[in-house]
Design a protein around this nucleic acid. Structure first.
Lengths: 339, 339
DNA sequence: TTGTACGCGTTATCAA
DNA sequence: TTGATAACGCGTACAA
């Protein structure tokens, strides 16, 4: 006895339904699984018994017999203890969850504990899930990506380590950053800085590359670079360092909105005005973009859709349908008052 | 064939390990489950075989036989499409996940789809999980709370509908709101308003009650009440209505930081100063409190801890250990610059 | 179209 | 302490 079960009236088994309906278990199983070749009359009778007895199929037994679990895992790195605080992550998971709700798949969140890596590995390889979704980008986080015997997998963002055979959904970070930076240039800004993100993950790397391409394409030097870790505080600190290096900076591109919001506090505390003295562009178009004053001009990308797409592709793969290896989501520039 | 399995080398079964080790399956099972009464020498031999063959126990088969799934469900309402955007929710889930990582339990996120309620119900009652965590507060969302046959459950926040027998973890919303409001009174504010939250959930109801108690306790009339839905925009709108009613408001208590941040934009766009003209106090102490200018004075509560506690209590119940029915987390006032 | 019977990988019972 | 062996609840060839 593992817990108080008073008042418990467990769901009947398939066998009990069969008895009640006066058919074999096989027939009940067929009705439950919508197998075409069943006498409509029998279908009716069985379904009646099912509702009368309040039968709920046992997913565990079903999995054992069918070798499919009908559940998929979402793996997130523990290292990023801020994963949940990151609106990007939250939105991806939301998209995944929303799509799966419309399917018969169940969502398993697994924290890739660094202290117990074998736990994650065992879970993923133990036949507990039909597929895996990975929302991390750190180098090294994909240690299980190329394991033989692993179920189908779809990544959020391009993999860092080769991974020619990986399936993933991403936004074109470099292109979007390029466009955002060009906006600043078009508005006449000439002394551009960037608060880049961690250089061990694609969004950090590619957004910096896009910024650099635009800046250097305009014949300017891309030297005003400071690195943050995508958090609010790191944005504020990076802005400090930038202004300490060059007070004449007239535009900043931040690799995400949280860091942009952090930069705001630094800029404004130095008596500088946004956008008059310093124009700011962010990336993500999340809640932070709206909560700051003046509201932030930022790169919008469909994060929830990205999550949905990941789930969609994974389910396609699981069920044997063809699927694109790489899907790129479109971005757009949301113009507000910070430029 | 459901998907490409080239290169797959499935984990061996318990039986294969038994053969390899020259013992019976029962013995291997005992070793795997740390059953005390096994010859140390055999334990060694079996463990050797396990690592050599790279054996991973099949959780599904284990569940079927043992009638325990080693996984718990976190139920979130679909209605709140903003659940994931809500830092509170994210932190609770983070806490839950963090605690479960240290146990052998797995986390199942289930969206309580309103269009397919039977799916949620079936999942929860189908023996798929050993316990349930509910992070919603809406009236009606607990329709499955009192189902017989349901596994142990722990709620975030007090249940709205009686539920004398429920287990839950909460913060004392009324008490905290009372304290926050008293701070405003102590600072000499006399024309207090509140942007309350939805009145169909405890945080909305109780924080309003706390505010009212403090205001009326000071001999003032608690009439300046506007209701929001915990979102940024609703906070801005509510502040509009308040100022339209009475421009001499000198203090506002918002039921969460997001609404407080929304109120900021309204207040400042009317040319009023925070805190000189209007003092503001929020609730949650999340990222929004830091991203606004001036930084927000707000009620801090240990949300991640709350999640951890929920998971801890649920696991205790599942494993038959005694547990408190109601746990109340302490709050504190984080003083910043908005008062 | 329906039923029989075996197997899925593990735990649990009962003898030995 | 160890080993047969019967569940666990369902899917699915295969046979009828």
């Amino acid at each position: 006895m593992t817990h108080d079960t008073s008042g418990t009236r467990p769901s009947p088994t398939l066998e009990m339904v069969a008895a009640h309906a006066g058919v074999s278990r096989a027939t009940v199983s067929r009705v439950v699984n919508d197998t075409p070749s069943v006498d409509p009359e029998l279908v009716r009778i069985v379904q009646k018994s099912i509702t009368e007895l309040n039968y709920i199929p046992n997913r565990v037994a079903r999995s054992l017999a069918s070798r499919r679990t009908n559940s998929i895992a979402v793996v997130v790195p523990e290292s990023t203890s801020k994963v949940f605080a990151d609106p990007f992550f939250a939105s991806v998971v939301e998209g995944i969850a929303l799509h799966l709700t419309e399917t018969d798949y169940t969502l398993n969140m697994v924290i890739a504990s660094e202290s117990r890596p074998e736990k994650t590995r065992g879970f993923l390889l133990g036949g507990n899930v039909d597929g895996v979704l990975v929302v991390s980008h750190h180098i090294g986080d994909h240690s299980w990506t190329h394991l033989s015997g692993a179920p189908p997998m779809v990544l959020a963002g391009r993999p860092l380590d080769g991974g020619e055979d990986s399936y993933y959904v991403e936004v074109d970070n470099a292109q979007a950053a390029f466009g955002a930076t060009n906006l600043l240039l078009e508005r006449g800004r000439r002394n551009l800085a960037i608060i880049a993100g961690r250089q061990d993950m694609p969004p950090g790397i590619d957004r910096l590359a896009g910024w650099r391409a635009a800046v250097e394409g305009a014949g300017l030097t891309g030297e005003l670079v400071e690195i943050g870790d995508f958090t609010f505080d790191s944005g504020a600190a990076a802005m400090q360092r930038l202004l300490d290096r060059d007070v004449t900076i007239d535009a900043v591109f931040a690799a995400n909105d949280q860091m942009a919001a952090g930069a705001y506090t630094t800029i404004q505390s130095r008596g500088l005005s946004i956008p008059d003295d310093v124009a700011v562009v962010g990336f993500d178009d999340d809640a932070f973009a709206l909560s700051v004053t003046p509201q932030l001009t930022t790169v919008h990308h469909p994060i929830v859709e990205l999550g949905k797409k990941m789930a969609e592709i994974l389910v396609d793969r699981i069920e044997g349908r063809p699927a694109e290896r790489v899907t790129r989501m479109a971005t757009s520039l949301t113009l507000r008052d910070s430029v």
